[in-house]
Structure formats: structure tokens, C-alpha cells
Design a protein around this nucleic acid. Structure first.
Lengths: 346, 346
DNA sequence: TATTTTCTTGAAAGCGCTTTCTTAGATTGC
DNA sequence: GCAATCTAAGAAAGCGCTTTCAAGAAAATA
């Protein structure tokens, strides 16, 4: 019999060989319960035990198995966050800022990327929920029916970020795509432009960009003398913007103002216009969206709408922490607004 | 007695109220063991049971508690990844690419950001290990002593990425910083430049940038007629680059070639030179590092060294999957190399 | 000194699954 | 037709912690 010859490992997993709490308890001459208490709530234990436990734990190189800990306790210190992409500085910056705030508190960030695919988003939500996270952060207010249902009955706070217009499931922290689209249109119109274009990428998949385009059109309708059209292109980087400028030049030669759905495209387009000898802003005004790092250093420097980059992460983290600390903390709806950064392209 | 009046919840956690496997088993009229088998290894049960279990699970809206599952089984389907920042497109792109490959297999990505702080990196490694991840991916080959020790005895594959020179702890997939620094120096020298500058940011904290700077200097030493100096500045975006150009102009008026440690700084500097009337590349040649999205669209388009952006994520994911599938899969050392993208600034 | 109250500590019962181990039933061989 | 072999399903033992509960010791009150 295997048992007769001592301990027999049930099976060998990654945890095999790790020091466990019982060993620390034995080494310290106390019960496992005391080790648990000493490690998690030092106040609740006598100084003598505290010292012995720490000594033993240090000597043995013990560190708590989070899985077991989550299993036994009711809470899993995981914050799940779902974004469309990490390629966009908006989201990666937000995540970084959240991460910086919660890591010191012992929470872990679990990240999911759905690449603007609603079905993928839904399956991410599902699998994240299976981890019993302490909170779930998703991007935007538009989700599939399934996702919405899942989020609605999630047993933890749900924060929707980077949007504002629709009613949230729980909390929403972001900025209004409708306002964004209108601000951009109004700016171009104020600059005297009359033949406008909204040039976006993947408007069929990115609901927030689509909402901005719709609002852009909606705003223009209030000015009978102004026309506007929405163009959508493939890809979503500076290359695509370059090509876009050629399309605009060719198919819309009388356009005198373009709003791009992102700064990177705008920067590519600026290079394209320059190569074709189209003068910006004399011949055509250009406005972007995002105010990315390089946007102020394009030639000419790009006018753009700056979403609340920094506030976003900070506010989400703040709200998150408040709700984790106090389960009765109410949901919130926070509109962080925009700032129009006027530089040389309009 | 509470027990007398039926089930009593030990305590109410986030999992409270969730359907559990036992309920599915009861609804399907089978044992919990069969439910577990039906869900995880459909082949191992009869079609009849399989069908009943699935029907019951669907009806009850059951989904497996991953924490409990990880606790009971030996494996936790978590891939932990630690990067210095998410703000840098290198890392966020790599993460996105890994995420895309592993999510369909049911693994979760846990992300940690240490912001170029070794102590923080160490504590991230420690806490990630506490989750029993299936693999740990870290950035670079330079870690604190503590981190190195932790990684060396990690019970899972450890992949170091985005570097190559030093000996890895386990596997390394990346590109050589030494090669990068030398390629950049050589390019400038080949273009006839003799008074070189390596302008970096946070060289004291970013060991990879520091390694490139050192290699740059090392290469220059082989050319007696060439001089070189390393400058380090605060911040790390286009703004800083703009200011840097002024510093270079003022303190090193005879410099005729600059290598920036990142494209964003280079782009800022390009704007700065242009504003000061310094002609690029006539008066001074500029080369960047990174080949970011906007780099090809600066004015003039930036010459830069392109690290293996895309291959990096793909290779890490491939290697990861191979090792997860087959625990005996050997460690690998993969050097992905660079490509010099010559555009107009040199 | 006797009695109540407070504080520490240990024993033990799970948390919700997975995985042996075991047994009952179906299949096959001689 | 009965023993030997195989298969499918259930029983039960944990995985490593946390937390309740109970008991004993110490402190406070009478």
C-alpha cells in the first residue's frame, strides 16, 4: 500500500511541493487557524503568536495559495476588465491606471480583449463571471442581449466606461459620444466649413465611433447650408488615414472639412494631403479624436477632441475602490466631458 | 437552531445563489461526478447522461465555478504576464496577441504593470505565483535578485520576452538590445555622421534602453573618428522629445546624428528641430526605435529600427501553447531580430 | 474567593469542484 | 452457461484555506 510508506501525492499539480499553511502552523507550534489569522488580521492574535507565525512563514518561504484562499473565503480578489482592444492608447492607459490603484490593495486584474466582436465580449463576460470577480469593468454601453443579461444579474459591481449616453446596467463612467460628435461638427462649422465629411474606421463594429458619426450628422442637420457625409474605411491606423485622404480628394474634391474618428488616421491623412499638395487647413480643415501623444507634433499640429484619458482610469479606480470597501455604495453615473484642443489643422 | 429550519448559508459571498454542480446533478438525476465528466470530457460518459446533463445545465443556467475547479484540479488556467507599462505599444500589442491566442482555449490573462520598478516587479511575481498560474511571462532579462530567485523556482514555464542578450531563466523570446544599439550607431555612421548622440528617457530605470545606449557607445568606439554621447531626459513622450531637441541644439550644436530611444520622442524632436529651423537630415540625422504607427507619417518620415512587434506576441503564444500542451517541451531561446526602416530622416 | 465577562486559541466544518477507487452491469471467452 | 474482462456511474476523499463554534485562560466584577 502506498499509504503505508508515507505520504502519497494524490496527483502532482503546479502546487506540488509548495509549503502550505499547515506546515507553517506546525513549525510555529500553533494551529492553522492562528496562522490564517496572523497573516490576514494581525490584530486578532497575540504578539507572541504573531511573531512565531511570521518567523516560521519567513523561514519556510510560505506564501498563501490564493486559489484556496478564494475558495474558502467568499471573495476572489480579482477585478475583471474587458476592452475592445489594447492597441488603442485610450484603453491601455485606463487599464494601467486602474492597475496601479488596485494592485497595492492585493487585487488582481484579469483582462479580456474582444476586438469589437460582441459575441466574443459575451463569452468573455461569461468566463470572467465564473471566477467570481469582485467587480467587472466593461467598455461602452452597447452589448449583445446575452451580455446585457449576464451583466444585469452579475453578483458584483458592473462598471461601464468610455461612454455615457444610454442608461447603464449599474454604474457608468465616461463621456458622451453624442456630445463628441456634435462638438466636432460644430467646430468645423464655426470655422466656416460647409462640405463636411466624417471619416471613420469600422463604423459597423465600433458602436462608439458609430455614435459619434451619427451625432455629427445630427448636428449638421441643424444647419441647412451645411452638408455632411460619412465615410468608412478598413483598417485603423495611420496607413489607412493616408489612403483615406486620397479617397477624399478623389471622390469628394469639394469637401472643406473632415472629422476623423481617430487621431492616428488623421495623422496619416495629414501626410496624404501634404503629399498631394492639398493645404491644411486652407483647402481642407482636419479634426481628430483622441489627442494621442503624437497629435500635437504632426505637421501641422492636429486639432482634436480630447476625451478624458486620465480622469477615466482615476475615476473608475476611485469608484471601484469605494464600492469594494462599502458594498452599499450606490451606483454612479459620471460624465467626464471633453476638451477641444484647437491646434493648426482647423 | 438554524439548521433545523433548512439550509443555512455559512456566509454570503459573491458566489451566493449561484447554481452549483450538485444542483445540476440532481436535476439531471445523476451524480456530481458524472456532471463534472460530462462537462469536461464528454467522451467519457454515455450519450444519455451527456444529454441529460447538458439539458439540466442549460435549464439551470449553470456554469462552472473556476475557483473551485482550480482548487480541486491541479491546474489554474491562468497565464500571468508582467510588463513595465501598457502605455508602450510594444507591450500592449504583444499582450493583445497572446490574449487572442489563449482565450479561445479557456485560459485567462492576468496582467501586472510595474512601471519600470524592480521592487514592484518582484511583488507582482510573488503574488502571481500565489495563483498557481500555468505560465508566467515577464519582460526582459534583468530582474532583482529576489525576482530571479522567485522565477527560477517557479513551478511553471517562465518566459522572458523583449530581450535576448543575457542567459534566460527558462525560455526567452525576443531581440537583442545589443544588436539594436549597434545597428542604430552603424546606420548613423554609414550616413557619414561623426558627432552622435543617443537620447534616451529613463535610462536609469529601463534596462533595455540602457543596454541599447551602452551598445551604441560600444559600437562607436570602434570608429576613432566618431564621437558619441548619451543624454537622458525625464518623461517619455513626444513633449519630452520636443524639449530634447532644444537641449541638443543648445548644448551640442555640432551634433549631426541623434538616435532616440523611442519613436515618440523622435517625433517630438522632429517638430522641435523644424520649429528651430534645423533641417533634418541635412543638419542632423534622426533615427528612432520602435516603428510605431505614426512613425512613417511624421514630417519628414522617420527612419527607425523596427523590433519584431508582431512576431513577438505570436511566438510567445506559440511557445506557450506548445509547453502547456506538452510539459516536456523544452525551453527555447528565440532571437527575432530587427529591421531597419530607412525613411527620410537619415 | 466566587462569579461573570472578555479575550485567545484550537477543532472542525465546509467552500464547489475533480479524481481516484469501487461496484454494478454489460460483454466476451471457453 | 459461468468465470473473466471491460465499461460506465457513483461514493467519497480531498484540494488548502477561512471561519464559526466552543473551550479554556485571563481579566474584571462582586
Amino acid at each position: 500500500m502506498a499509504d503505508a510508506e508515507g505520504r502519497r501525492s494524490h496527483r502532482a499539480g503546479p502546487a506540488a511541493g509548495r509549503v502550505k499553511m499547515a506546515e507553517v502552523a506546525q513549525a510555529a507550534g500553533v494551529s492553522p487557524a492562528s496562522v490564517s489569522r496572523a497573516l490576514k488580521d494581525p490584530e486578532s492574535v497575540s504578539p507572541d503568536i504573531l511573531a512565531r507565525v511570521h518567523a516560521a512563514a519567513d523561514r519556510l518561504g510560505y506564501s498563501r495559495n490564493r486559489i484556496a484562499s478564494s475558495m474558502a473565503g467568499a471573495r476572489t480578489p480579482i477585478i475583471a476588465i474587458i476592452v475592445p482592444t489594447l492597441t488603442n492608447a485610450f484603453f491601455s492607459r485606463t487599464i494601467q491606471s486602474i492597475s496601479g490603484k488596485i494592485a497595492p490593495l492585493g487585487h488582481q486584474l484579469m483582462i479580456g480583449v474582444h476586438e469589437y466582436d460582441q459575441a466574443q465580449e459575451e463569452s468573455l463576460i461569461q468566463s470572467f463571471l465564473d471566477w467570481n470577480p469582485m467587480a467587472l469593468i466593461v467598455t461602452g454601453l452597447h452589448h449583445s442581449r446575452g451580455s446585457t443579461a449576464l451583466l444585469a444579474r452579475a453578483p458584483c459591481p458592473v462598471i461601464e466606461m468610455w461612454d455615457y449616453d444610454k442608461r447603464p446596467i449599474d454604474s457608468v463612467i465616461g463621456c458622451s459620444m453624442d456630445v463628441a460628435g456634435r462638438m466636432v461638427a460644430r467646430h468645423l462649422i464655426q470655422k466656416g466649413r460647409r462640405n463636411l465629411i466624417f471619416a471613420g474606421h469600422m463604423l459597423d463594429r465600433d458602436p462608439r465611433a458609430a455614435a459619434r458619426a451619427a451625432a455629427f450628422l445630427g448636428e449638421v442637420e441643424r444647419y441647412p447650408e451645411v452638408t455632411a457625409e460619412v465615410l468608412s474605411l478598413e483598417g485603423r491606423n495611420a496607413d489607412a488615414g493616408y489612403k483615406m485622404s486620397e479617397v477624399i480628394r478623389r471622390d469628394h474634391p469639394d469637401a472643406d472639412g473632415v472629422a476623423f474618428s481617430g487621431d492616428l488616421i488623421a495623422i496619416g491623412a495629414l501626410a496624404g494631403f501634404s503629399a498631394m499638395g492639398v493645404r491644411v487647413p486652407e483647402d481642407i480643415a482636419v479634426i481628430g479624436y483622441g489627442d494621442l501623444d503624437p497629435s500635437g507634433f504632426s505637421q501641422p499640429p492636429l486639432t482634436t477632441l480630447r476625451p478624458p484619458h486620465h480622469e477615466m482610469g482615476a475615476e473608475v479606480a476611485r469608484h471601484l475602490l469605494a464600492r469594494l470597501e462599502n458594498p452599499d455604495h450606490p451606483s454612479e453615473m459620471i460624465d467626464l466631458g471633453f476638451r477641444l484642443i484647437e491646434r493648426a489643422t482647423t
